[in-house]
């Protein structure tokens, strides 16, 4: 998938609620249609993030698990 990433947010090592707080803050500073790449290690983000996207109208473009238990999400701002 060839997606232009505008910003990357590193939440590795952080647990709830820091990843979602940092994500919400980062998304606030982005423009419509821009894409944020978020990487983290908290399993809770796997269920929190899609729910948050559903609520806010942002789009979760992709979700994958990288080596070493790192999760990667691509979110497009509404």
């Amino acid at each position: 998938m060839d997606i232009k990433i505008n910003e990357t947010l590193d939440c590795k090592g952080l647990s709830c609620p820091m990843p979602m707080m940092k994500l919400a803050k980062a998304m606030k500073g982005m423009k419509s249609e821009e894409v944020l790449e978020m990487i983290g290690t908290d399993p809770g983000t796997k269920s929190d993030l899609p729910r948050w996207c559903g609520k806010t109208g942002n789009t979760l473009l992709d979700e994958s698990e990288l080596a070493g238990g790192v999760f990667r999400f691509l979110i497009k701002k509404k």
Binding site: K12, G13, L14, T41, E65, L66, G68, G69, V70
Partner: peptide
Amino acid sequence: KSYNFFAGTG
């Protein structure tokens, strides 16, 4: 700095 050990990926 953060570290992640013994993950069960793959």
